[in-house]
């Protein structure tokens, strides 16, 4: 295609952007000139695309904008998040709007803390051939293959903590030879860990009771009836827990509880 061989003219380099340099990128094979400082997401928008799919939080945390790209003279297929990856000259790229992955359905309340639960729901976990493609694809640097190994070994705690930063973008799934739905498996592991294995916050029970209790309700009613002047006074004089105070700190004034 003649388009691909064309050199960028000086005029194009500076068109409409003041001093910013424009570079060519190929969106699904079609050439556009975009400022070199933009992320893939902003570059596509600059070119005139308006996203329906493939765009979410725009801050690298929601997993909506998985992108696959290649650089000139490089056989590697690379992946990343469009909102976090800066364009490079002659990049070939496309968004992945959706990638199917098997998700098991379960009644969470009936599950135990046993790894057998995961094996039953996701038997394909044993199809992992330890190629590590998932880990290489992860834009959050989650050690995906290690998580899957931990699941296979029955170590739910390790699987949960290692996978905590997962944003469920699905790039691991897209590269997996064993066809595992890694991010769904991790989700289940974390939920089992959070509710069945990690030590429970027992103090929540007394806090729930205290909030419903008569003493608290009466004090709240009193506050709700106070006028602004009274409220401002109480507010200004409230004791503030010092930033550097330890967990055992207790207030000097007990009456405002």
């Amino acid at each position: 295609m003649a388009d691909r061989e064309r050199k960028v003219t000086d005029k194009e380099k500076t068109a409409g952007t003041g001093k910013v340099k424009l570079i060519p990128v190929y969106v699904m094979g079609k050439r556009y000139l975009v400022p070199e400082t933009l992320t893939i997401m902003k570059a596509l928008e600059y070119a005139g695309y308006r996203f329906i799919r493939g765009c979410g939080c725009r801050g690298g945390i929601c997993g909506a904008c998985a992108t696959v790209y290649r650089k000139p003279g490089d056989y590697h297929i690379r992946v990343g998040l469009a909102c976090q990856t800066v364009v490079e000259p002659d990049m070939y790229l496309t968004q992945i709007p959706f990638y199917p992955a098997n998700r098991a359905s379960y009644d969470f309340a009936q599950l135990s803390d046993s790894p057998e639960e995961i094996f039953k729901l996701y038997p394909e976990v044993f199809r992992c051939i330890a190629c590590n493609s998932c880990t290489k694809a992860c834009p959050m640097d989650v050690q995906v293959m290690d998580v899957i190994s931990a699941v296979k070994q029955g170590n739910i705690e390790r699987a949960a903590t290692l996978s905590f930063s997962c944003i469920q973008c699905g790039l691991c799934v897209s590269r997996c030879m064993g066809e595992l739905p890694q991010y769904h498996i991790m989700q289940l592991a974390r939920r089992i860990y959070g509710s069945r294995i990690a030590p429970r916050a027992e103090h929540l029970n007394e806090a729930v009771e205290a909030a419903k209790g008569e003493k608290c309700q009466q004090a709240l009613e009193k506050l709700m009836k106070s006028d602004i002047k009274q409220l401002r006074e109480i507010y200004q004089s409230r004791e503030i827990e010092p930033e550097m105070a330890g967990e055992d700190w207790t207030p000097a004034k007990r009456d405002d509880l």
């Binding site: 806090a207 205290a210 608290c216 004090a219 409230r238 207790t250």
Partner: peptide, 19 residues
């Protein structure tokens, strides 16, 4: 959430929210 009743309460949470 006021979860540590030895030093906190829904009332203080209420007051902070209003302020």
């Amino acid at each position: 959430a006021a979860t540590k009743i030895e030093k906190d309460s829904a009332c203080l949470h209420y007051l902070d929210t209003l302020g």
